[in-house]
Nucleic acid binder design. Sequence first.
DNA 1: AACTCAGGCAACCGCAAAAGC
DNA 2: TGCTTTTGCGGTTGCCTGAGT
Length: 192
Amino acid sequence: MRKPCCDKQHTNKGAWSQQEDQKLVDYIQKHGEGCWRSLPQAAGLLRCGKSCRLRWRNYLRPDLKRDGFGEDEEDLIIRLHALLGNRWSLIAGRLPGRTDNEVKNYWNSHIRKKLDYSHRHVGFTRLRAEISAARSKNQANDPETFIDVNNQVVGFNGGKLEPTNDSSSGIYINLDLTLSIPSKNFESSDEN
DNA sequence: AACTCAGGCAACCGCAAAAGC
DNA sequence: TGCTTTTGCGGTTGCCTGAGT
């Protein structure tokens, strides 16, 4: 039987107060990240470890961007989502200062709607077709499909998408994620 | 001004993978 | 090697806010 992550009767839930944030930040600055299970008690917080970890990673980390998503970031998310699906942590990993939760929320509240409009966009359709071909090759367990994501070559290895140095053979797709599709085209495609 | 409703975001939950023993 | 514990991830929920009526 799995133990619950914390004693829910003695933990706070809901929005974090400034005092709680400060305690968490102070503790992590002193002791570093990790040991989330024991952290709340050590930091004097009535929260479960998972809650502390989430709060730190999504909102308190000093390297987070707190401004809105730019067009280039949005384009990148669209391309990565076409490639990776709902692998939010992987997508967020390609966006410095962004979290998986932030990307996921942004996708669900903004981009998904936009894509409903843009699915007829020729360039985007072509991109999806290329990616779809690569993914179906992967489903056939063919390891020789490589995708260049911002100069990092990744390959399907045993069904997993992983960085690889071996791109000497097989299908090779350069997504060129440093360039952005003019996102205005997405919007305009349905408005005529 | 009051009410309703939809959108956006923060946070929680449960599961799976990884790590430790 | 197998079991337990911890961490990470993705889906979902619930609250808050602003627009519309």
